[in-house]
Structure formats: structure tokens, C-alpha cells
Design a protein around this nucleic acid. Structure first.
Length: 115
DNA sequence: GCAATGACTGGTA
DNA sequence: TTACCAGCCATTG
């Protein structure tokens, strides 16, 4: 993959994450699918490096549980935004059935890698 | 160029 | 419906 494509992919991920409404979340796999990504893990890597300027707490694992790096600060954001939560043995997780969000065509059009 | 690493997913219990 | 286990893939050292 070229540097150029990588940059477009990174930008697409960041734009998409910024487009997620407050109180809603997306799974890494959903993000990868929306931007045409090759794998979910890549989305995580992009956010770990460039996610400083976007609402990264609105991106969670497919089953609603939080990555270790999120458990610290994310819960505060969820409470503040009224994100649907559920509680499990592994601590807390997001109620994906209610909080799950999918980008519309208008949003997808703004993604470089989708254009 | 090879081996290790990670902000993950899907299937099974 | 939730929890646990093994596989995948691009990036980094």
C-alpha cells in the first residue's frame, strides 16, 4: 500500500469518527467496512496514532466491550452523552443494540477512500 | 527480510 | 445473551 493511500485511509477514518453523533458508537469492524478498510485492526492502529483529535471513545469493539486504553476515560464521556450502557462481568460495556450507529450516504461521500 | 505486536472479530461453550 | 479462545493482517523494530 502506498503512502498516499494510507493517508487517505487515515483521513477517512478520522472523518468518519468525527461524524459519529454524541451518544452513539461504532465498532472497529463497522468503521473498516464503511471506509473500505482491509481489516478492523488497522482502524485501531490508525486511531492509536492519529486519534488524538477525534471522539475516539465512540469507537468500541464489536461486542460492546471497551479496549483497555478506553476504560480509563471513556465511561465519563458515555455518561455525559447519555450513551446506552450495559453491565457485565468484565466491567461495563456499551449497549450495541441501542447505541450502534451506521453512517448514511451523505457521510460516506465525504470519505476520501470512498470517493 | 523476518519476527513481534496490537485501541479486533467471529465462532463456540 | 455473555464470556472465553484462536486466528488474521498491517505496521513497526
Amino acid at each position: 500500500m502506498t503512502d498516499d493511500e494510507r493517508a487517505a485511509y487515515t483521513e477517512s477514518v478520522l472523518l468518519l469518527v468525527e461524524a459519529i453523533p454524541a451518544g452513539r458508537v461504532m465498532a472497529y469492524g463497522d468503521v473498516a467496512d464503511a471506509v473500505g478498510g482491509n481489516g478492523p485492526r488497522r482502524v485501531g492502529r490508525v486511531l492509536s496514532q492519529h486519534g488524538g483529535g477525534v471522539p475516539w471513545w465512540r469507537v468500541v469493539r464489536a461486542d460492546g466491550t471497551l479496549p483497555p486504553s478506553h476504560r480509563e476515560a471513556a465511561p465519563a464521556y458515555y455518561q455525559a452523552e447519555g450513551t446506552p450502557l450495559a453491565t457485565g462481568s468484565a466491567g461495563m460495556r456499551v449497549d450495541m443494540a441501542r447505541a450502534g450507529w451506521r453512517p448514511g450516504p451523505a457521510v460516506l461521500r465525504t470519505l476520501p477512500s470512498r470517493r
